[in-house]
Each structure stands twice: as C-alpha cells, then as structure tokens.
C-alpha cells in the first residue's frame, strides 16, 4: 500500500486522505520542515506502520492525520468520517508514546473521560469504561491512579480508553517506545485485538521493525517525506 496505491483504491471510503501536505514549525531561518509533500490515504480496517528514524516526521504526520495539528500546505481530509475538512475527533483515537493518562483521575475515570466529553452520562460512560477495561484485562486496576501503574499497564489503559470511545481510526504514536520487548509486544497485541474488535483502521508509527512487521502495510519516512511507494507485509 503506497501513497499512490491508496489514492487509486481509497476513493470516498478512505478514512483519512493527505494531499501534498507539509508542516513547517517556526518561520524564517529557524523554520523546521517536519513533513513535506506527503500524499496518501488510509482505507477502512487498514493496518499501517509508519516507520523511519527519529525526527523523520512520523509523530507530526500522525497528528496531522488525527486533526490535532493543521498542515501548513496541502489538505488533510476524512472522507469516510466527516464532512470534508472538518475534524472528526469523535471517530479518531490516539495512543501516545509517553504517559497520556490524567494523573488526577483513576483508571476507570480516565477511560470514561472521552465518553463524558462526548456527552454521555456518567453512568453510561463508566459502564463502557468497565467493559473496555475488561477487554484489556485491567478490571482489577480500575481504582488505581496512573502513578500506581507500570508503563505497560498505562499503555493498556490508554488502549482501553481508545476501545471505550469506539473510533474507526486508531493512531498510535510509538506506543511501545518506553517499553521493553515483551511488554511492547503485549501492547501491540492489545491494539491489534482492539482494532479487530472495533473493525477500525490502525496506524502505528514505530522505528521497531518487529512492530512494523506485524502491520500489513508500511510507509517509510525520511526527512519529512513518505519515501516508500508500496510495501505490503504478509503476516
């Protein structure tokens, strides 16, 4: 699946589409181009690895895909998720490399938070949160504060939070970056299982080949550009 191939296959069913996207931080001589001329799209139920060395623009690309950041040049759209150019925040969920849980909320409250923000009642949100925690096998930790969890547990809670909000596109930015190989593999298992269960597309940025190998397609990034034309990985 390359940028071009996605272009050809995606049509209106693409969850996210990038058209000649660039993102520059700063201005003048201190300007840094994080992403340049990126074109591609992610179809439903895709399993995509975005690989490349540190500083190659993987995180920025995911943030642009999530709608949290806006491109300096080009267009990001979500044809299958929302009206063109409007950010479909409710249908996209993100897992971050570092701790992304609210320190002042316990595990269950953290998982329920996106649902409460989306307008669900406390009772419904917490019920959904408990179900999501059960799916990642973390029911026992629901009363714990983030400070009381290990790195792997924190990432699994972050995945449970994704599960609870039932997105159609999961973006995971180096989700195993802070974990050892065993715990990292476990988090990827959980992410893949969650994506399968939600029938959602999963995009993982990573520089770990073992993680990338578990995805069906791969974009290789270098100096802000998507270099690889097409690379389909058979699992």
């Amino acid at each position: 699946m390359s940028a071009k191939a996605i272009d050809e296959d995606g049509l209106d069913s693409a969850l996210v589409r990038l058209e000649s996207v660039a993102r520059t931080y700063g201005t003048g001589q201190s300007a840094v181009v994080a992403v340049r001329d990126a074109t591609g799209s992610v179809p439903a139920r895709a399993r995509l690895a975005v690989t490349g060395p540190s500083g190659s623009g993987k995180s920025t690309l995911l943030q642009l895909m999530s709608g949290l950041d806006r491109p300096t040049v080009g267009t990001v759209s979500w044809p299958a998720l929302a009206h063109r150019h409007l950010t479909p925040t409710r249908s996209i969920a993100m897992v971050f490399q570092g701790p992304s849980l609210i320190p002042a909320l316990n595990v269950e409250e953290n998982v329920a938070l996106p649902l409460v923000l989306a307008g669900q009642t406390d009772r419904d949100a917490h019920a959904a949160a408990r179900s999501a925690l059960a799916l990642v096998d973390l029911t026992d930790l629901s009363d714990k504060l983030p400070e009381e969890l290990s790195g792997g547990q924190s990432q699994r809670v972050a995945v449970a939070r994704v599960l609870a909000s039932r997105p159609r596109l999961i973006l995971a930015d180096e989700p195993t970056g802070h974990l050892d190989a065993v715990r990292g593999a476990h988090v990827i298992d959980v992410l893949l299982a969650a994506a399968d269960q939600l029938q959602a597309a999963l995009v993982i940025s990573t520089h770990d080949p073992a993680v990338a190998d578990r995805m069906t397609s791969r974009w290789r990034m270098s100096e802000g550009s998507i270099r690889t034309a097409q690379e389909t990985v058979r699992l």
Binding site: I102, A104, L105, N106, E109, A112, L113, V116, L117, G119, Q120, T121, D122, L145
Partner: peptide, 14 residues
Amino acid sequence: GRLASTAAAGMSRQ
C-alpha cells in the same frame, strides 16, 4: 455540566 463528577474527582485528588 456532565463533567462535574470528573472535575470534582480531579480537585479531590489534587
């Protein structure tokens, strides 16, 4: 609004 219990929980813990 609906975030009341979340806000209260946050303040209570901090």
